[in-house]
Structures are given as C-alpha cells and as structure tokens.
Amino acid sequence: MEKSRVLRGMTARGGARVLAVDSLPAVRDLKELHGLSVLPCAVLGRLMSAAMAMAADLKVERGRVTLVLEGDGPAGRAVADAETRGLARGFISTRELPGWTRGPGKLDLSRAVGKGFLEVIKDLGLREPVRSRVELLSGEIAEDLAYYFAKSEQIPSACALGVRFSPEGEVLSSGGILVQVMPGASEEEISELERRMRALTSPSYSLERAGSLEAFAEEALGEIRWLGEVRFELSCRCSEEMARSIALSMPREEIAEHLRRGEEVEVVCSFCERAYRFDPARLLEEVERLEGEGGR
C-alpha cells in the first residue's frame, strides 16, 4: 500500500529546518472514505499535511499531534490527527460545499472556513497533552500554522500547503513545505528563504510537476541535507469500548426511546465511519448500575 511521506532536513547552510510532505495517498483515501467534495477535501487535506509534518518532528517515540480547525464558515469543524509511529486519521463536519474560488485554479478556503481558531494538541507521553489555541489569520491553514509557531512556540516559520484536483474532482497531489528558521541563521539566508517561499504560489502543482518529494523541496529551497523520513497511513484507534462509553453518556430518556422503538443504539466513529451498535436494554441496565455506584 502506498503511504504518505514526510521528510525532515536542513538547508545546506544550516540556517533552517525543513519538513516536506507528500500526503496524496492519505488525502485521496480521506476523500473516498468520507465522500468529500473538492473544497472540504482541500481544507482537510491541508490540515492533514500539517499534522503529519508536526508529528514527524516530535522528539518522542510515541507521540501524537491533533489539529482542530474551528471556524464559523460553512465547512464547520475539521480535525487531523497524526502519530509519530506513522498513523493518521481525520474528518470534516461538512462533506459537500460549492467549489468557491478566488481566482483561476485557487479554491477559496477562507470563505469555507470563516473566522475562528486553530487548536494544536500535542501528546508527548506526559500526564496531560500540551494545548495551544490561536486565532485564524486567513483560514487558508498554511498562514495560520505559521502564525501558531510564531505566537505559541516563538519559532519564525513559513509554510506552503496545497491540494490539487482534476476537473473531475480527483485528487492529483497534496502536500507542502514547512520551513523553520534556526537561531544564528544569517540575514542573507533568511531573506533568500523568504523569497523562495513567496515564489511557491502553488505547492501542490509544484509537487506534482517535480515527480518526487525530494525534487519538489530542493527545487523550492535549494540544496537540502535530508535527515530522516516518516511514512503515514490512515488508521483509526476507535474501539467498541470507546463507543460504549459514548453510548452510556447519552441521556437515559434517549436510550429508553430506542428501546421503545425496538432500535439499537448506534455510535458512528467520525474518523473511520465504523458503526458500533448496542442493545438499549443492556445499556439501561449498565446505566442503572453505574448510577448506583456513583460512576455516571
């Protein structure tokens, strides 16, 4: 099975760290799994590329990055989740939207996302995950991610992300580049990197044209010393136990209504679309037991 890739490297002069992403396999699968139209797929695809890049850069063996995009636009809520061991999953609450554009070949993500917040959750294996929340600058995601790094982690960064589609709506390419300036970088190198990133106006097209992730990044930024790679595939960690906990958290009256109608209680995972079904009579028995124990 083809997997998405994240490459980690340094610019030849050592002034910046580079994370290059090819998320095409995962984004293509997400589009099919959730039945997404082009614009919601572009939103989720960019968010997924960002989550993969950040997860690949964690310095722990078993870590996870979750990005939550909460805008007031019609796209609603989008979540991308990626683990250091190469597992990823994601969803967006609105599956179909018109293909709004802001120019030839430019999807209008800002109109779809609206105003809101980007939340970054890092699970580093500590007692509690590290959470940060920043206001969205544009809803285009790349600019919002760079703003997060500048405000929450004090790391000067530049980011370019994109998802490219055929006229029929097929995903042709998906990915991008995240560049982070290192302490001690020369003004000359910083200026050169800024110039190169500004010139990268269509990263998904450049990625498709380059033919490989390495060639894409090096054409964009010049010589890169590659340090490592993480490959990602879609995978969900939902379980019957987790779904049962959600079912048990439902109001007792709602569970009883399912029983009256002779219907099972269904819990569907937003990430993988798997449906879990439970007997309402047994759920009510368990609810009563938990309430008796003070555990609900």
Score class of each variant (00 low, 15 high):
G162I: 11
R260M: 01
G169N: 08
E119D: 04
A199V: 04
A56R: 02
G184A: 11
L283Q: 06
V60I: 01
L24R: 11
R13H: 10
D29A: 12
R195V: 01
G9F: 10
F232S: 05
K31N: 02
T101M: 07
A88R: 05
S270H: 11
Y148P: 01
T84P: 05
A20V: 07
E266A: 12
V79F: 00
G169C: 09
L87T: 03
G176P: 00
P104L: 14
V181Q: 04
T201Y: 10
K115M: 02
P129T: 00
R277L: 08
P280V: 13
L207G: 09
S49Q: 05
V21F: 10
D279R: 06
R252V: 11
P104A: 14
V120T: 03
D108N: 14
R77H: 15
K106I: 11
G105R: 08
A275C: 07
V171R: 07
C159W: 10
L58P: 01
R77S: 02
E253P: 00
H34P: 03
A55T: 02
E286R: 15
G103P: 06
E223S: 06
L30H: 06
E254V: 10
G175L: 08
S132F: 05
D123N: 07
K59Y: 05
S37E: 03
T11S: 08
F271V: 08
W100S: 06
Y147C: 06
E293L: 15
P104M: 13
G176M: 00
